[in-house]
C-alpha cells in the first residue's frame, strides 16, 4: 500500500477544516431557506461535503473521502460540534464519506461530464447524510422527508458544480506539486 504524501495530508486536513467550518458559516443563510420551506435542514451538509469531494477528486486515492470523514468526525466530537445527533454524529460524517468514495470509484469508467459527475457524487453524499439524520434524529413524515431529501440533493448538485470548477482550476497546479496520484486521470 502506498504511503500518503505529506502535501496530500496537508491538503486533506485543510479540506477537512473547511468542510467543518463552512457548515457553521453558511448556517444562518441556510436557515432562512429551510425555515421558509419548513424543513429541519438539508443545505449546509451539501456545501460542507463539497470540500471532501474536491479533495477526493483531486487526490484520486481510494478511501480518501472516508479517511477525511473519519478525521472530521473525531474533530467534531472533540470540539463538541455534534448538533442534534449527539454521540451518533460520526455516522453523519462517515456514511457520506463512504458514499463519495464509492460514487467516485463507480462513476470513473462512465465517461460522464466532470461537472455532472461531481454534481451526482455530491448530491448522493448529501442525500445519504440527510437520510442518516432522518433515521437517527428527525423521523420526518414522508412528504416532508421527500422535500428534505430533495433540498439536500439540489444543494449537492449546485455544490458539485462548484466543486468541479475548483477542481478544474486547482488540478493543473496540484499536479505540478505532485499532489495527485499517478496513473489515474
Amino acid at each position: 500500500m502506498k504511503k500518503w504524501k505529506l502535501n496530500q495530508l496537508i491538503f486533506m486536513a485543510l479540506c477537512c477544516d473547511l468542510g467543518l467550518i463552512s457548515k457553521r458559516l453558511i448556517g444562518p443563510a441556510a436557515n432562512l431557506i429551510t425555515d421558509a420551506l419548513h424543513i429541519p435542514g438539508g443545505i449546509g451538509t451539501g456545501f460542507s461535503l463539497m470540500f471532501l469531494v474536491i479533495a477526493a477528486s483531486l487526490i484520486k486515492r481510494r478511501g480518501c473521502a472516508f479517511f477525511m470523514a473519519a478525521v472530521q468526525s473525531v474533530l467534531a466530537l472533540g470540539m463538541g460540534m455534534v448538533g442534534s445527533m449527539g454521540l451518533l454524529a460520526p455516522a453523519g460524517y462517515l456514511v457520506p464519506g463512504l458514499v463519495i468514495d464509492l460514487m467516485l470509484w463507480g462513476t470513473e469508467p462512465m465517461r460522464l461530464d466532470p461537472a455532472a459527475r461531481l454534481a451526482a457524487v455530491n448530491a448522493f453524499a448529501a442525500v445519504s447524510a440527510a437520510l442518516i439524520a432522518d433515521l437517527l434524529v428527525f423521523h420526518l413524515p414522508k412528504a416532508v422527508l421527500a422535500l428534505y431529501l430533495g433540498t439536500a440533493a439540489f444543494t449537492g448538485i449546485i455544490c458539485g458544480g462548484l466543486a468541479c470548477q475548483v477542481v478544474r482550476r486547482l488540478s493543473p497546479i496540484l499536479q505540478k506539486e505532485g499532489l495527485k496520484e499517478d496513473g489515474r486521470t
Binding site: 461530464d113 466532470p114 461537472a115 454534481a119 458544480g161 468541479c164 478544474r168 488540478s171
Partner: peptide, 12 residues
C-alpha cells in the same frame, strides 16, 4: 485540456 477542464455546462 484535461478531462476535468472539458466541462460540458449544458448537461450540468
Amino acid at each position: 485540456k484535461t478531462s476535468e477542464q472539458n466541462v460540458n455546462v449544458g448537461n450540468y
